[in-house]
Structure formats: structure tokens, C-alpha cells
Design a protein around this nucleic acid. Structure first.
Lengths: 208, 208
DNA sequence: GATGGTATTACATAAATAGGTAATACCCAT
DNA sequence: ATGGGTATTACCTATTTATGTAATACCATC
């Protein structure tokens, strides 16, 4: 039984080209190839493809929005994003939206089949530079961009767990006034004015 | 100029096997192959290899600890982890420690050269299932495990940006008392008792 | 039309936090 | 030894939060 592939790609040339590539291999059948995602949900429900190839940048509604809508229907169908962008924001937006993999168009000719296979076998294909970005995002930034001292870091970490001043005082065996003093310094260095802002910044920027 | 590879692998058979594979290709030269990482830092300083292949599970000191120590010296040398484990904890520990890629041993024979090339070209090779785990971890959990209402979600999101009750009241054009009311409900549902705890939980569990 | 869930506003009080000022002490390096 | 950075404690005041209680209103659904 051939793998049914549904394609969303606004560039006609590329759309045809991908379809042709897939038709060369009898393991695949192109369910359809559309130039926009305006009716993606219903099209998917009707065609029930095994995998979707989705361009990220399309006029009208882009591929990321489409992924969000598709996932909102509860569908777990694998969606492989195709794109020329390899900037952090696009990649992460797409992955967070629920994309299953992320393939740069320049790798299309060499990696398309392999990528589809990977997705269908529970993998998550990514172009190497994309994989690097993803991993880099998981790793702590090398160091201390706000020049927090050791103690300030301890306090910020504790604060980020939701501890109150009292609890921190007990945890570090110092007085509440000292905790306060450290927090004042932390606010200065982080340019914030409340616990919430500090914690938000700390967690989002992986300071803790 | 050949790529100098340093190997850490406690299994003698596998260590020899990897060395042999690499010797088959004139592009590579094996700087050394050790059975433990006890002196990794000094060995790296002496041999200055271009890339390290690091088994994750070794007696005495494991590969993850070794990566942490190596990164602590400030070295940015690419480290490709070799492992039989593909459980979430091992993978994430290694990546967070600063590993550059993560190759399952069962893919060693087919992917070793390709993976080394990827690492040296700024990529981050991962076995497909590993890549899937990493992406899955980045994605939002399907939905609303705490059954927050639309409004509560809006408030929590705003709170997580560090906004005060006053600001939120202005943002949503409601009174501060209403904001307070929503926050009370949020605390109930999240089982927390302060902004900091709520924000911490929200960001870490990707509710916002 | 009754019911349940959500959204809204109000008032009150106790607790926690933010920001200012100030002083002491320790350690490291010049 | 002297100074700079860090850690510590203290006190004060204004603001913000946490929590409880209570009431009204809208909307969908049964």
C-alpha cells in the first residue's frame, strides 16, 4: 500500500516538482497538491493522507497557522515543514505548533524520501543546521549574561521555584533582609521590578 | 588535513571497531581511543582533536559527567555521544550538558561518517527517534491540563510576562478586582499560592 | 425557565513585596 | 594595606498580593 502524500506549496514550479519526484517512486502516491491552506482541515478529512508536506511561507495563511489549525482538530497526522528559512523564530514557531520535522528546501532533492521515511517511522527529520539550532536552544547559555554573583544566582533559582522570601531565608540560613537585598540587586541587573518579571526572564532565558 | 578523532568507549571490541572504521577513510585519523574519561581534560588539551566520540555509559565516570567537565574548561570542541540508550532522561542530560549530537550505536555502522561530517559543518546529528524526542519536548502539551478558561489563560499569560494586576486590568479593560478574582481561580486550579509559583509552573509546563 | 459554568465587580484584612538608606564584614588582588 | 566587589543585616514606608466573602449578569444547555 503506497504512502499517500498531501502537498501544500504556493510556488507552482516547486509544487509540480515535488509531485513529480514522488511519482517517480511507486512507494508514494500524491493525494493532492494545493497552493494554499485555506481549506486544509476539510481537505485532510476527505483525503486522509499519511503525511503532509507543508510550505512554511504561503500568502493568505502561512504554514504555521495551518499546522496550529490542523492540530486543533485533534489530528496527529505527521506534518513535514518545507522552508527556505532557517532562522530560530520560524523553526521554533513551527515545531511548537506541532510540526513533525523541518526540511530546508535546498535539501529537498537529496533528503525528501529519507525524511518522509523517517517521519513515518517515528523520527523527526531536520536539516543539520536546524537540528543544531534546536539543540542549542536546549542548552544553557554558556554564561551569566547579567553578571549575577553566585549568591544572586542561588536566590534567583530559588525564587524561580516559587519560594517566598521567608522560605529562601530559611533555605540559605540568612535573614529575610538579606534575601531582600539580593533580590534588589537582581532586579537592578535584570532591569525588572517584580518577582514575576524576574522569574519570567530567568526561566525564558534559561538563567536557571 | 585529516580530521583528528578522539574516542572514549569502554567496550574494547567496539572501541577497536570504531577505530578501524575511521582508519578505512583517509579523511580521518584516530588521535587516540581510551577506555575511560578519567583524564579527558588533559588528554584533550594534549591531543587537541577536531571531534570527540563519547560513549555515554562507562564505568567510573560516565560520558555525561565527562561532557560537563570538558565544557567547564571552556572547550567548545564538538562531542558526539554514542549510546544504546534512547530514553528521554539520558538524551536530555547529555544535550543539556553540552553534547553536539547523539548517535545510537545501532546506527553507528551506517551513520558514523555522515554524523561526523554534520557535526563539523555546524549541524547536530541525531538518530531519528532522538530527534523526535527532542522535538516532542519542545511542543506544547496537547491541551489545558488544568482546565483553565479562556480568560484565565489570558490572565496567566499576561502574568507570565511580568504584568501587575493594574496593568492587566488596563490590558483587558476590567477592574483590578476582576483580575484578582481570576487569579484566585488560577491559583486554585494550579494548586499554587503566589504569582511566582504560578508563573514558574506555567512557563515550565508550557501552559503559556 | 432552571441550572451550571463563566465573567464581572466590590469590600475588607492580613501578609508579602519593592525600594530607599545605611552600616559592617569578608575576601581577593593590586 | 588598601580598595573593590560581594555578602550580610537593619529599619522604614508605600505598594502590591493573597484570601475570604458576596453579589450580579450572561450564556448555553437541558
Amino acid at each position: 500500500m503506497a504512502v499517500s502524500v498531501l502537498i501544500y506549496e504556493d510556488n507552482t514550479l516547486l509544487r509540480e516538482s515535488i509531485s513529480s519526484m514522488l511519482r517517480l517512486d511507486p512507494r508514494f502516491v500524491v493525494a493532492a497538491a494545493f497552493e494554499n491552506v485555506l481549506h486544509a482541515e476539510t481537505q485532510i478529512a476527505e483525503l486522509h493522507p499519511d503525511i503532509i508536506l507543508m510550505d512554511i511561507d504561503m500568502p493568505g495563511r502561512n504554514g504555521i497557522e495551518a499546522v496550529i489549525r490542523i492540530r486543533a482538530t485533534g489530528s496527529k497526522i505527521p506534518i513535514l515543514m518545507l522552508t527556505v528559512f532557517d532562522d530560530t523564530q520560524h523553526v521554533f514557531d513551527a515545531l511548537r505548533a506541532g510540526a513533525s520535522g523541518y526540511l530546508l528546501k535546498k535539501h529537498l532533492s537529496t533528503k525528501l524520501f529519507e525524511s518522509i521515511d523517517e517521519v513515518l517511522n517515528g523520527g523527526a527529520p531536520m536539516s543539520p543546521t536546524i537540528a543544531f539550532m534546536v539543540i542549542a536552544a536546549m542548552q544553557k547559555p554558556s554564561a551569566n549574561p547579567y553578571h549575577l554573583t553566585t549568591r544572586e544566582n542561588e536566590i534567583l533559582t530559588s525564587l524561580s521555584k516559587g519560594n517566598s522570601y521567608k522560605l529562601m531565608a530559611a533555605e540559605f540560613a540568612i535573614t529575610v533582609d538579606t534575601v531582600r537585598a539580593h533580590i534588589k540587586k537582581i532586579y537592578e541587573k535584570l532591569h525588572v521590578h517584580s518577582q514575576t518579571e524576574a522569574v519570567s526572564k530567568a526561566i525564558r532565558e534559561r538563567l536557571v
